[in-house]
Amino acid sequence: GSPLAQQIKNIHSFIHQAKAAGRMDEVRTLQENLHQLMHEYFQQ
């Protein structure tokens, strides 16, 4: 897949890990990143 698709997959797993660790501030930051990446992805 594209590097962007790979990045989106990575962030999904980072979010999963951050949630499991209870780091909600990190989850929020990652979700904002994910949102931006998704936006770029669909602009392609």
Results as ranks from 00 to 15, higher is better:
residue 39 H to M: 12
residue 28 R to A: 10
residue 30 L to R: 01
residue 18 A to G: 01
residue 17 Q to E: 13
residue 2 S to F: 12
residue 25 D to N: 08
residue 20 A to N: 07
residue 35 H to L: 11
residue 42 F to Y: 11
residue 26 E to K: 06
residue 29 T to I: 14
residue 41 Y to N: 04
residue 2 S to K: 09
residue 13 S to H: 13
residue 19 K to I: 13
residue 6 Q to G: 04
residue 44 Q to P: 07
residue 11 I to R: 00
residue 9 K to P: 00
residue 24 M to C: 14
residue 21 A to I: 05
residue 43 Q to G: 12
residue 43 Q to H: 10
residue 12 H to C: 09
residue 2 S to Q: 12
residue 41 Y to C: 15
residue 34 L to W: 02
residue 5 A to I: 14
residue 18 A to D: 00
residue 28 R to H: 08
residue 11 I to D: 01
residue 39 H to F: 08
residue 19 K to T: 07
residue 13 S to R: 14
residue 5 A to H: 11
residue 32 E to K: 11
residue 13 S to A: 13
residue 25 D to P: 02
residue 4 L to D: 02
residue 9 K to M: 08
residue 36 Q to H: 10
residue 42 F to L: 10
residue 20 A to Y: 01
residue 28 R to E: 06
residue 29 T to F: 10
residue 14 F to L: 15
residue 4 L to W: 03
residue 33 N to T: 15
residue 33 N to K: 15
residue 44 Q to F: 09
residue 6 Q to H: 04
residue 31 Q to P: 01
residue 36 Q to P: 01
residue 19 K to D: 03
residue 6 Q to M: 05
residue 1 G to W: 02
residue 35 H to A: 12
residue 12 H to M: 15
residue 33 N to S: 13
residue 11 I to F: 04
residue 21 A to H: 06
residue 33 N to R: 15
residue 34 L to V: 02
residue 31 Q to E: 11
residue 26 E to M: 09
residue 16 H to M: 13
residue 5 A to W: 15
residue 36 Q to T: 09
residue 15 I to R: 00
residue 12 H to K: 14
residue 34 L to Y: 03
residue 38 M to Q: 04
residue 39 H to K: 13
residue 34 L to T: 00
residue 5 A to V: 13
residue 1 G to Y: 01
residue 3 P to L: 14
residue 2 S to W: 11
residue 17 Q to H: 07
residue 4 L to V: 07
residue 37 L to T: 02
residue 3 P to K: 14
residue 26 E to I: 13
residue 5 A to E: 14
residue 22 G to H: 05
residue 40 E to M: 08
residue 11 I to N: 02
residue 35 H to N: 08
residue 15 I to S: 00
residue 33 N to Y: 15
residue 7 Q to I: 12
residue 37 L to V: 04
residue 35 H to D: 08
residue 26 E to N: 03
residue 22 G to K: 04
residue 30 L to M: 05
residue 4 L to N: 03
residue 38 M to E: 04
residue 2 S to M: 12
residue 11 I to E: 01
residue 35 H to Y: 07
residue 35 H to F: 07
residue 4 L to S: 03
